[in-house]
């Protein structure tokens, strides 16, 4: 009798481990994701000082040290940062973080600079890599 009860308990525990383990292994699959291949953008533009080229994911401009590209993702909470021509700075529309045209943090909750993007200057134009 006792042996039967113990066996039943044992089988229950085994079932628990089996099903729980199946669920846990399943969670690992749910947590993971397939990373997207990095996006490369080819741009054929002429850069002029003081003019910001606004792309969907990037800002491209001519600084004193040559062309630079900045990510438009706000380092605070990831909103898309916009260019404000009136003040000639970048402003995040969600929480009003401000950045200079070189991406340097000015004010707001971000406390970090805008991330620069990999930029290659080829003979045919610019190649931008968006991670």
């Amino acid at each position: 009798m006792i042996i039967k009860k113990q066996r039943r308990w044992f089988i229950k525990a085994l079932t628990g481990i089996w099903l729980g383990g199946l669920g846990a292994v399943g969670l690992i699959t749910a947590f993971s994701y397939l990373p997207r291949p990095p996006k490369k953008i080819f741009l054929k533009v002429k850069l002029v000082p003081n003019k910001v080229i606004v792309g969907p994911e990037y800002f491209l401009l001519l600084s004193a040290h040559g062309p630079i590209a900045l990510s438009r993702t706000c380092p605070h909470l990831g909103c898309t940062v916009n260019y404000d021509p009136e003040e000639n700075i970048f402003i995040c529309p969600c929480h009003q973080s401000r950045f200079t045209l070189l991406g340097r943090y000015i004010s707001g909750p971000a406390h970090k600079d805008l991330k620069p993007l990999k930029l290659k200057h080829t003979d045919a134009g610019f190649v931008l890599e968006i991670a």
Binding site: H76, L77, G78, C79, T80, P93, C94
Partner: peptide, 9 residues
């Protein structure tokens, strides 16, 4: 879009 990005962070 912004809400999604904020939620993620």
């Amino acid at each position: 879009f912004s809400a999604g990005r904020i939620a993620e962070h």
